[in-house]
Design a protein around this nucleic acid. Structure first.
Lengths: 164, 164
DNA sequence: ATTAGTGCAAAAGGTTTGCAGACCA
DNA sequence: TGGTCTGCAAACCTTTTGCACTAAT
């Protein structure tokens, strides 16, 4: 069932308010479904797939369907409250901005764990390289694929995943 | 029509031979279709989408269809002669190994140009960061999205693209 | 002769869209 | 009330697959 509500309620409330603001600015309407989806989304941690989100949303209101979840996610992305990511499994994942504004990802190909990291040197080096190629960076994406160095905890996570 | 045959014929021949070898090692069969697809593919430069490849292949033999192109591309990937990449537009692109073994990409969001670069410092830094996170890198992917610094040539390319 | 490969069309999997009815401003 | 939003199902797009037929070993 993988319910992972580990996010502080105040943080969720703040995101909800920000989304509300966006909705108003755009002249859109507040609806129960959007509220549900947004609050469930921000209550989840990490890199949420549409399927995961829908499952959790349906736990609150089973009548909400794919279409509304997709549509609301697009709004969240447009509002810049959420980023869409694709890690090569052909499936979009959505990530509410975390404490750290920008970050990169390490993806374990054994247990599936996704960790985030940020390194200023790395960013600086990229800027330098871009400049050398007469290029202006708007955004970038760095993903390291590999395996956790500690096989034990990694395999534990893997088993846990498979046991879902 | 974007026919971009700029690859030296000897280089293409070499790739064809390498693929032939792979086919034999695997106990697979040589076919006209595979030969056509492989030789057309390696004659194209850059990051080729399936659609582009199919178009060029059909120019040689119109009876070859999607399925065979996809199947042959999978073989090429398995043979390590080709890498599959996805740049977030939901479309797979295939890249024959160029001179430089590993490299990263800069993608211009205006003209669509994809340039490649490689920097050892960047690679080293990634290893260092991975080590700090108890992580072993198998492969990585770095993509810089932005715009060409020279607007003129960039816009020229853009117009060219749209004129297809 | 055997076994693998091809071409077609149908299926799959993720995502988007058209439309009638429901709901918010 | 009027226009937006929802839910459903159908459409879409890229990729894969089943199957009868063709071709390579």
């Amino acid at each position: 069932m993988t319910i992972r509500k580990e996010v502080a309620p105040e943080a969720v409330k703040e995101k909800e308010r920000a989304f509300q603001k966006f909705i108003q600015t755009r002249g859109l309407k507040t609806t129960k479904q959007r509220n549900t989806i947004v609050s469930v989304f921000f209550g989840l941690k990490g890199h949420v797939s549409v399927e995961e989100l829908l499952r959790e949303v349906k736990a609150v209101n089973p009548r909400i369907g794919y279409a509304t979840v997709y549509r609301t996610l697009h709004l969240l992305v447009e509002s810049s409250l959420v980023e869409e990511r694709r890690f090569g499994d052909g499936l979009a994942r959505y990530e509410g901005h975390s404490e750290v504004e920008h970050h990169d990802h390490m993806i374990c190909q054994n247990c599936g764990q996704i960790s985030e990291f940020y390194n200023p040197q790395l960013e600086a080096l990229q800027e330098k390289l871009a400049a050398e190629h007469d290029f202006t960076i708007h955004r970038h994406r760095l993903e390291l694929y590999g395996t956790c160095a500690d096989p034990e905890s990694c395999n534990n996570r893997k088993r846990e995943q498979e046991g879902i």
